Structure formats: C-alpha cells, structure tokens
Computed example of a mutant assay.
Amino acid sequence: MKKAVILFNLGGPDSLSAVRPFLFNLFYDKRIVNLPNPFRFLLAKFISKRRENTAQEIYEHIGGKSPILENTKAQADALELKLNEDGNHVYKIFICMRYWHPFADEVVKSVKQFDPDEIILLPLYPQYSTTTTLSSIENWQKNDKKHSLECNTTIINNYYDNEDFIEAHTNLTAKYYKLASKIGKPRVLFSAHSLPLSIIKKGDPYASQIEKTVKLIVKKLNIEDLDWGICYQSKVGPVKWLEPSTESEFSRAKADDIPVVLSPISFVSEHSETLVELDIEYKAIIKDGYYFRVPTLSTDLLFIKCLADLCLDHSQSPDL
C-alpha cells in the first residue's frame, strides 16, 4: 500500500519581497480574522502593508527569509525514513504550508500524481487550535475537492499528551535546567504562541491543551520545588490575548535576578518567533548569561518516533 503523509506547517516568507504577500495570506484567513468580505480583504491589505517593514527587519536578522521550510524538510526526511523502516507500506511525506509555498493547491496535485491508497493529515501543531490545525485541514479539504482527490483520509488532530512528545520535551528541558542551575535556582518558562481570548471563549481547546502538556512535562521532570510558569508570546493588535506575556515574565525574572530556562512549547520548528522574538528581543531583557533557551524538538528522535507512531496508529481521535 502507498500512503501519503501531509505535514502541515505555518510557512514563512522565502525572501524579503515575500513578506507582504505572506502577511496578507495570514490575515486574510477567516480562522485568524473572522470578518466577512470585503472587510477581511481590506483589513488584510491594510495590516500587511503596515507591518511589512517591521516584519522585514525581523527576517533580516535571520538571513532575509524564514528557515521554517528547511526545518520542516528535515523533519519530513527523518519521518519518511522512520515510517519506511519495516517495508510493509510505502510512505511518502508531502509538506504543505498554510501561508506560503508550498500551498495546498500545489501539494494536492503532487499527491494526486503519487496516487496513494491512503492519506494521513499530520499538522506540526501539537496542540489543537481552530486558528492552526482546523485552518490547515479546512484549506486542504477545499483544495482536494477542487482537484477531485478522492482517497481514504485520516486526520491526526493533536498529540499534546503523547508520551514520546512529553519525554522529548522533558529530556531537553532537564538538560538546560542543569546548565542554568550552575548559576542559581532557575525558573522554567514554557512559552506558547498567544491567541485572542475571544477565540478561547468560543471553545478553542488550545490553552487547556497547552496547560496539560506543561503539567505532564513538569511531573516528568520530577524536580523538587520547581519554579515554573506558562507564558504567551507574539500578540498582535489591541484586543485581549492569553496572558501572562512572555515579555512580562522575562521582566519579572530579571527583577528576581534568576536564570531563565525557556522552552517553546507550541513550536516544533525554529522560525522567526523563536530565533528573533525569543533569542534576540526577549533575551535582551534578561541579565547577560542568565538565559537558557531549550531548542524546538525539530528532528529529535523521540519526536520523530511520536509522529511516526501517530501515522501507524489511527486510533487517535479529536479532543475537542
């Protein structure tokens, strides 16, 4: 049997000139900005133009483009190798980005050429949100209908409590906690992408799944009197978002004069929000030498095993 695994990720601009269209695609998503057209279209045009220069400055710090596609390709290669180990089935991994190339429209055509017996939709979002997971799945379904891609399809909705996922995070966090402990008693901050409270109030399970992920890691760390907290980054606009903010927690740690171990808990690939926001902007708040950033899981062996097992075991059900 031939199986196609569709790895969903956010995507990112591959050049400075791609920044504005990337931002437009992001803010034109009805799961991000819930307005009818033409208002959503006009607002997306306005925001993408207004934020273009600021965003370009961010990407200039990391070589003028987002590294998320290269990161995701490395994950796809590792996952494909793992899935094809036993030789019972042929697995092929396809990367599908939401807001920049490769778009669902392009990927559906490639999958149709591959002609699989089964398709597995696997978002690189461990915690389910309507703004990420659902947005990617809906966009895929719209495009597979458009190109008449008819195939038995499995959707993996989340894996925020998967044992290997938790263990991978625990191992990395413990390693950086040990390093930070040489300076003093560290505070572990688990940083996740924030969401407007209005989305959470509509029943989005993201925040509760973030909390469950973190509590499982804290339990597995098994460190006596562990000083830890959850915080949220990347807020945009004036509406109320999930709090406390990562920035305010960094300021609090600075005031307490303690080292910080920062774990990006909702990101599994390095990109502008980890490499610039966390490692440049927020790092500048903390006392020099007091910042210990846990890397994203990326191609961590346990994380790749987690993804492979999810594809092999279709008993995963939505937790909504």
Rank of each mutant, 00 (worst) to 15 (best):
L312W: 02
I156L: 05
S251R: 13
F267Y: 08
L189D: 04
G12C: 05
K182A: 15
Y176Q: 07
L43P: 09
K202Q: 15
L7Q: 06
Y125D: 01
Y206G: 00
N157S: 09
F114A: 10
T132A: 07
S245A: 13
E150A: 05
S194R: 00
L302N: 08
W228L: 08
L221T: 09
C96E: 05
K215F: 10
S136I: 00
D204W: 10
H101V: 14
F165N: 08
R20N: 14
D164I: 05
T173Y: 08
E85F: 05
N53Y: 14
K145A: 08
I155K: 11
L149I: 14
V218L: 01
P295D: 09
N37F: 09
L226N: 06
D204Q: 12
L302D: 13
D204R: 09
P36K: 15
T274P: 00
P38K: 14
S136D: 01
I280C: 00
F27C: 10
E80M: 13
D77A: 14
V5Y: 04
S315N: 15
P36H: 07
F41A: 12
L195S: 07
N157L: 03
E60L: 14
N157H: 15
L278K: 01
D77S: 13
C231D: 06
V107Y: 02
D313I: 03
L302P: 11
K49S: 15
V268A: 04
G12I: 04
D161K: 08
K82L: 12
C96W: 06
A192K: 02
F27Y: 13
I93T: 11
Y282S: 02
T213M: 12
Y28C: 09
K73E: 13
D227N: 11
D257Y: 12
L179F: 00
K73V: 14
G237C: 05
K220R: 15
L275W: 02
S208K: 14
E270S: 12
S194L: 05
D256F: 01
K109V: 15
Y99S: 10
K283I: 05
F24C: 08
C311P: 09
E273I: 00
A78S: 14
R51T: 10
I119Y: 05
Q141C: 14
D288C: 07
D105G: 09
E277F: 00
P186E: 11
P318N: 06
I6Y: 03
T154D: 13
Y160E: 01
T153R: 11
K49Q: 11
H147K: 12
K92G: 02
V268C: 04
I230K: 08
T54P: 00
